[in-house]
Design a protein around this nucleic acid. Structure first.
Lengths: 131, 131, 131, 131
DNA sequence: GTGGTCTAGACCACT
DNA sequence: GTGGTCTAGACCACT
């Protein structure tokens, strides 16, 4: 699966696994019907605890992104693309809402918020270019 | 001080105290030299433990926002306004950067991000109006 | 970890833990990636409260010397050696600056300061030899 | 008396009063037999608590620097100059000893310590010039 | 198992 | 009165 974990401690590992699988589906890298590595296999690959992978898969199942099939393994569900896009939009939306809300509470006006947005976009572009 | 704590469990209490005092300073409600309620007094007001208030004050001292005077109490520091604005801009900036980054990773383009931003702004405006 | 606490009451326990870990890193006894005893384990070792250890670790994390990994434990961070040297030099520098400043204010001239320095160095050498 | 207090919170106020009077005596600004302001008067001058001044005077009396004369007030004692120099040298000596000791514990060698000493001296010279 | 947060309550130095 | 430090012990999220 080639997932990359960031051990900086801010985002839980199971959460990172959830998001990375969501992204691969939103990007079309993974499509409905694709098999997903078993809990044990992915845990070995990432050298993390199987419980952590299991928790991620459970959350993705709740979201309608993964499906377990009896004795066959775990697969990308038919509704995965729309569900993944929904989750992505919700995540981005909540971050933006929180940013806008905090700006208001700190007395940051629309113009300055606009400025911070452009600065953040530039910072992001730079980071992306470095990879 | 009239701080409002949100006991939803996601943001630590001491963190909420930190942010609310930062905001009051960024907004100019509190100005340099103003006395801040004592650790014990604010703890009583908010019905939380004095240690929790002390931790918030300690963090605000690290940030150059509060100053303690031996046996006299705690006061808004001279550099508080700029420090509070800095903290606010950093918080908003990091939220925006994270939002933009996630959008890219989820294959959300510039136009859709713009849309989500406007939607978030509207959602925020509505909430503000309800208060 | 074999830390030694000095219960003379002047230096807080958490501060002593901070400094001793800084020193072990500056000396190269602890290197990046090394695991640090858990909060509970070190608390047991030193027969102090886990909260006290946690406070020391928190400060060391702020300084970029320790890194916490979710549910796994605490480790020496990659930048720890330079950070520890920086903290050490800052501590020594501020002590020297204070000494020089006090000397000037007390009318102690350069020669006498030099003398006090040599005397202090000798006193230190003797103490070291006794151990 | 024209003492200057630094309300930064690091050094207790009574301690600052002690040191400043010691310095004036070590510098010869105050000489044996000189009257010292009453506790109340100095407290008013510095807008601090009389208890704080009283504590400072008590300490200076212990050190043989001040003398109380029945119903007359407080005066610089005959032995004050030597006592003040002794206190000054002890203070500077202990700071230097602590600096040297910390340097050793942090693996800072003689050359680097020398460097830090010169840097501190320069920093001190600059601060002095600004005043 | 790991660290993070919090409460309840104590004792201390300083003003 | 003020803040600083510490203990004892609980509950939580994460691995």
């Amino acid at each position: 699966m080639d997932l990359k974990l960031d051990n900086n401690g801010s985002t839980p590992i199971y959460q990172q696994v959830v998001e990375q699988i969501q992204r691969r589906i939103a990007q079309g890298v993974l499509v409905p019907g694709d098999p997903i590595p078993s809990v044990r296999q992915l845990a070995l690959e990432l050298t993390i605890n199987p419980n952590t992978v299991a928790r991620a898969y459970l959350e993705l199942e709740y979201q309608g992104i993964l499906q377990k099939r009896q004795g066959q393994g775990t697969f990308v569900s038919p509704d995965a693309p729309s569900a993944a896009r929904r989750e992505g939009a919700a995540l981005v939306g909540s971050l933006l809402e929180r940013a806008i809300s905090e700006a208001a509470l700190f007395g940051i006006g629309a113009e300055e918020l606009e400025l911070l947005f452009r600065k953040a976009a530039r910072a992001r572009a730079k980071k992306g270019a470095l990879r």
